[in-house]
Amino acid sequence: MSHTAHIRSHRKPRRSTSKIAMRAGVAGGVLSTLAVAGASGSASAAEPVTQTLELPTLTADMAVQVAQSADATQMAAADYELQAERDAAAAKAAKQAKADLADAKKQAEARKKAAEEARQAAAERASRTAERAKLSASASVSTSDSGASVSASVGTGSAASVISFVKAQIGDAYVSGGTGPNSWDCSGLVQAAFKQVGVSLPRVSQDQSTAGTQVSLDSLQPGDILYWGSAGSAYHVGVYVGDGMFVGAQNPSTGVVEKPLSYDPPTGAVRVL
């Protein structure tokens, strides 16, 4: 017997081939399972997750409530629209009423003014008519007292009558060719004024400017005839009424007026009374 026979050998025992193969198979299966699981995880991570939300089921009661709410909303909207239309109509009616009232006031004021003007015109016409009648009567008395036809040398009283006549026509209209009783041109007024005292003058201003004795403008007397333009070719005439004033039918815009000599200085004057 060897002296080392009782010492256990230090060499590892050999594994059998079948155990090694079994262990290899198990390891391979584990690796395969991990690979499949990894692949499946990767695929799951790549695909988005879809989540489904479940809506509450619309019951019959809820449907009725929704319908009623919609009807109420529609009725409220209709009421608001109707109220808005009524408000707009009321505002329009108020505005129209205000405009109608303003127009009515204007028309009433216009009628009142027209009536007042008509009344004043009637009063002025009546006054002029009375004045003319008085002048005619005065002229008739003067003529019968003298016992002869009134000539160009009638006294001072006739000049006053001429002046009263032309002043009575102040405010009458100017009309070319007018000879009264409510509208005149310049020579028509002068002719009518002197006719009241029995003095017959030519019709037109050119002839009236030479009808009497030429006098200086510094020596004027009431009743003198003023003229504008040259003697014999005058284009306008009037009557001097004293105190630096004259009366004449000036133009369509002024009519018969009384003005100072400075308003339109005359060229010359003639005296027929």
Rank of each mutant, 00 (worst) to 15 (best):
K105A: 15
K106I: 15
A110K: 10
A110D: 13
A110M: 09
R111Q: 05
R111G: 06
K112C: 02
K112G: 15
K113P: 01
E117A: 07
A118L: 14
R119V: 11
Q120A: 10
Q120V: 15
A121R: 06
A122L: 09
E124S: 14
R125T: 15
A126V: 06
S127Y: 07
R128I: 11
E131Y: 08
R132P: 02
A133K: 05
L135M: 13
A137C: 04
S138E: 11
S140P: 06
V141P: 05
V141W: 04
S146T: 09
G147Y: 04
G147V: 09
A148V: 07
S149T: 09
V150G: 03
V150F: 09
S151Q: 13
S153A: 15
T156K: 11
G157E: 06
A159T: 04
A159P: 03
A160Q: 08
A160D: 04
S161E: 02
S161T: 00
V162T: 07
S164P: 07
V166G: 03
V166Q: 12
Q169E: 12
Q169V: 05
Y174D: 09
Y174W: 13
Y174I: 15
V175C: 02
S176T: 02
G177D: 00
G180V: 06
N182G: 07
N182V: 04
N182P: 01
S183Y: 06
W184G: 07
G188Q: 00
G188I: 04
L189N: 11
L189I: 12
L189T: 11
Q191P: 12
A192H: 04
A193D: 06
K195T: 03
Q196P: 04
V199N: 02
S200Y: 13
S200M: 01
L201C: 00
P202M: 08
